[in-house]
Design a protein around this nucleic acid. Structure first.
Lengths: 188, 188
DNA sequence: ACAGCCATGTAACTTGTTACATGATTTT
DNA sequence: AAAATCATGTAACAAGTTACATGGCTGT
């Protein structure tokens, strides 16, 4: 919902045409969320469908201005007043992938974690090495840095945990419960 | 890609029928990624379309077994051997939302950050309060805890930064560059 | 008989994303 | 004149998600 809501919030500042909207979004996010131009027009159509924006005037240069509706404005107000609420569940690709790898007797979860640590460390260093002109870039980069650091700490901790037990100890623990009518051929 | 790849990896251990697959996924992720049953069948069809799994035998109870193909197996091997690579960009809803809020002169970014801190702190506490039977739940919960802590630290830091400057200083800095042909009515 | 779980599927939808077509304007 | 940028759109797709229909089996 980020793109949709962000574009709506920008339109709440005043009418925009598509290309201008893209420029605004880019500027306000320090170009940290690359946006294909086409997506602007898709999103505008979807917002129009939902009654949150309206097609406005077209100026002499042919720019099609879009304006927010009352319904759209109140949605923006609500969005800006309420926090993002993450459920009790995860959508983290790395955590899920490693949990799955740990559960597979045939897989080398340790190797995966080490590979991930190298990758994540490289990313962290590249994030830390960059310097930022605008505040938006700085804020977002910092959030990525904090997240990458947390990711690395978790990877290290998980690696140690796995190493602390006998090889495959975790996998064995995980495979103790078998599917009720599982076939004998599963899980080697 | 997490669901798709995870299901494929489970099928790499041996044939499964849909419902069983769901059970396996649930178990291996400690039920931390709630999966609607229907999604299993969708995903299986898409995997079949891509030549990664095949419809196998149906047993006496009517269970439709699916088996992985060679192509699917090698994709699993590749998946498990390579880290998740996050681009140089973010897809973090909170960071983007706050960057947008900071850029909007009319919005109270400080209030949003405080609301987010309360929400994120509550989530962190609820995560910390839970105890986990299985290793998968423990791993994933820990990854969420680390991420939530990083999120909170970033929120605190960002709040302090914003407070450190004169009110709207950041917003003003951000709105210095104007869109080239922006209309005078935009941004106050 | 009825409630609830097991099991398979279908259809529709959301957000994000990309590729492509088209033409005007601006810069080199 | 050619290249680059501005500008608007269309069509299709990916991955995840949900709601619903259908029927069998199981336990009370």
């Amino acid at each position: 919902m980020s793109v949709r809501q962000s574009l709506l919030a920008i339109l709440d500042q005043g009418p925009c045409y598509g290309y201008q909207l893209r420029h605004e979004f880019d500027r306000r996010t320090g170009s940290n969320w690359p946006l294909n131009v086409g997506q602007i027009y898709n999103t505008l159509e979807r917002l129009e469908r939902d009654g949150l924006v309206e097609r406005g005037e077209t100026d002499s240069q042919g720019h099609v201005y879009w304006q927010i509706t009352d319904s759209g404005s109140s949605e923006v107000a609500q969005w800006l007043a309420s926090p993002v609420v993450r459920g009790t569940v995860t959508r983290d690709e790395i955590a899920i992938k490693i949990a799955i790898a740990v559960s597979l007797p045939g897989a080398d979860a340790g190797a995966l974690i080490r590979a991930q640590r190298i990758e994540s460390l490289q990313r962290l260093q590249s994030l830390q090495g960059a310097h930022h002109e605008d505040v938006a870039s700085a804020l977002i980069a910092e959030s990525m840095i904090f997240a990458a650091e947390a990711e690395l700490r978790w990877l290290e901790r998980t690696e140690q945990r796995l190493a602390g037990h006998a090889p495959h100890a975790l996998a064995l623990a995980l495979t103790t419960e078998r599917p009720k009518r599982g076939r004998p051929s599963r899980d080697g």
